[in-house]
Each structure stands twice: as C-alpha cells, then as structure tokens.
C-alpha cells in the first residue's frame, strides 16, 4: 500500500480532530457462478470520536456488507479492496483490511470495533443462556468472575432487558429480546467504535427510543457509533450526520437536520418522500441490479432530473459531511 490515510479531518467549522475510522476507496465484490455483485463501491467516509453516523438506504444497497467488510466477516466469495484504518484512542492504529485474521480476532473484533448484527436470532449460540454468553464475553475482556456477574445484570438493564431473562436460552427469547441481548453482548467490551446494524428491529417504540438514547449517550461520552438503519425517524432522532447509500455507493453525507430539511441528492429526496408521514410514495422503478450497474450514475433510470451527462460518473464526494454525488443536485440552479 502506498498511501496512508490522514489521521485528522477538517470539519465544516475548520477544526482539526483526530478521526477514529478512516475509510477510503472501500470496494467489495462478490463472485457468483456467472456474475459479479458490486456490493460496495469506492466508499469514503470518516468517523470522529463522539460522532453518531447513520447509514441509510434501500434494502440491498450494501449497508450490511460495509459493516462486515470492516470486521473481516465476509464470506469466501468476496474480494475487498481500498483502505480502512481504525485509530483507537488507546493503542496502535489498525489497518482493518490488511492486518490479517489473527489480529482482527485477537485485538479488533469486539474490543476495538464492536458489531450488533442484523439477524440476532441466528447470531446467538443456541446451547448457552444469555447470562453465560454475556459473562464469557465480559471475562474475555478483563472482567473478574465476580465482577462479570454484576456487570451482566447492569448491561441487561442498560439495553432494557429484565436480568431474569438472561437465564433463558436463545430459542426462548422473542425477536425483540434476542435483539437486546446481542446489543448487550456488543456493548460488553465497551468498544470505542460500535457498528450497529439495525439494532432496533423487533422492538416497540419505547424500546426503540431506549436503545437509540443508549447509543447517543455512548457518543456523548466520547465513543462513536455507526448506526445502520432503515428507520429514518431513528436516524433523525440521534445521528449527528447521515450518509445515504444507493447501489453500493454513498450518494449524500450531510449533517442530520440539513439532510432531512433540504436533501440535495434526488435519491435522498425520493427516500424521504416514501415515509408514511410524508407522501408514502415509493421511489419509482425497480431497485438496481448490483450485477449490472451502468457506468454513470446508477440512479439515472429512476431519476426525473437525469440528462445525458448522468451517463458519466458524478464527481466523487469529499471525505467529510457536506455534499452529494450528483450532476444536478437539488437546490442548485440547473
């Protein structure tokens, strides 16, 4: 590798802060029998300590693959290229894509970079109770046996789970309870950066808000969270910045309020219009085939602003939040 990612970014206000995660040019391809799936393409983004970044986008656009790529959890038919560096506040920077499975397993996964997985039911070991899973995780991360027992109860309460329910086996948990348990497991090592992939699925509104506020509080005390969510209201409630993904690429990354009030990418505008409290109108047309993307803007077949120039790729987005990748952004004169 020839380039080293910068360890600081300049924010909108010009202040320099160390970044916690620096992703540059991240690209993931899956080989299938007759085709190649373009799951993540040339993705750039940074996460600062204290930041809650929400990643939203249509189902299948690559959000979960992004999280799995950073953790080295993709299946064998995946190829990953680009750069992803984690700068934990304590310890050496880690080259996530290059450091190898041994280091990821021992020093990174869970400890420096946590994951709340999207399908909690399939992520839990069926033969161990929640308590046993949680205490094992705590003890693997420097808690004594006695300390682990109290910490497990405390974590259960934090995620809104009755500590008595920790004594159940995974198949005895409802979907929402399993969700809270995997969240507690991810929080146990107290990672500086948490990737939370749809952590509120299956929860009713009070528990959704409880979980979101828990993630927000982590950021307010200096940790960071990358929240993958389909729930735009959730993103709006807690995120500092929102990144919108379409057809494997980030198309808009902006401060939260700005994005909701004045989206500038036509796809973002379409996604917001689909909300039941807005027009409840789906983005027209079909989602793109990631096996056959056009060379230019992938949104063009569904976009009412498309012109000839959209057959060429829009200019890449800057590193930090601010702009959108579009030839004819909304709000700009045509």
């Amino acid at each position: 590798m020839t380039t080293t990612a910068p360890a600081t970014t300049t924010t909108a206000h010009g202040e320099h802060r160390p970044t916690l995660l620096d992703v540059d040019g991240l690209t993931v391809r899956f080989r299938l029998r007759e085709t190649v799936v373009h799951a993540v393409t040339d993705l750039r983004l940074t996460v600062r300590p204290g930041e809650l970044l929400a990643v939203v986008g249509e189902s299948g656009c690559g959000k979960s693959v992004l999280a799995h790529a950073l953790l080295g959890l993709l299946p064998g038919n995946a190829t990953v290229t680009g750069q992803a560096r984690l700068h934990p506040p304590a310890g050496e920077p880690v080259d996530l894509l290059g450091c190898g499975e041994r280091r990821l397993a021992r020093q990174v996964r869970g400890r420096a970079l946590g994951l709340v997985p999207q399908s909690p039911a399939t992520a839990l070991t069926p033969v161990r109770t929640g308590r046993r899973l949680l205490e094992e995780t705590l003890r693997a991360h420097d808690h004594s046996r006695r300390d682990a027992a109290t910490a497990a109860d405390r974590l259960a309460v934090d995620v809104g789970l009755d500590p008595a329910d920790l004594d159940r086996y995974p198949h005895e948990l409802s979907g929402g309870m399993a969700q809270r348990l995997v969240t507690a497991l991810a929080l146990a090592p107290d990672p500086p950066l948490l990737l939370a992939d749809e952590p509120t699925t299956g929860l009713d509104r009070p528990l959704v808000d409880h979980t979101l506020d828990l993630l927000r509080r982590r950021c307010d005390t200096g940790a960071a969270v990358l929240l993958i969510t389909h729930d735009l209201a959730a993103a709006r409630r807690v995120a500092d910045t929102v990144a919108v993904m379409y057809a494997s690429r980030l198309v808009e990354h902006r401060p939260t309020e700005a994005l909701f009030d004045t989206p500038i990418h036509p796809y973002t505008a379409g996604l917001l219009d689909a909300l039941p409290e807005r027009a409840f109108r789906p983005v027209p047309g079909h989602p793109p085939m990631l096996t056959d993307l056009p060379p230019g803007c992938a949104f063009a077949p569904r976009c009412d602003r498309a012109t000839d120039i959209c057959r060429t790729p829009p200019p890449p987005m800057p590193h930090g939040p601010g702009r959108a990748a579009c030839h004819h952004p909304l709000g700009a004169s045509a």
Partner: peptide, 17 residues
C-alpha cells in the same frame, strides 16, 4: 405481522402499494 418493520421507507411503501 410487522412485515415491513425491517424495511427501508421506499421498500415499505412499495410493498404496501
């Protein structure tokens, strides 16, 4: 039964339609 709870807004609106 909560069939669109895990879907993005556009997919949800599409399936509802």
């Amino acid at each position: 039964d909560e069939a669109t709870a895990m879907l993005d807004a556009s997919t949800q609106a599409h399936l509802a339609a």
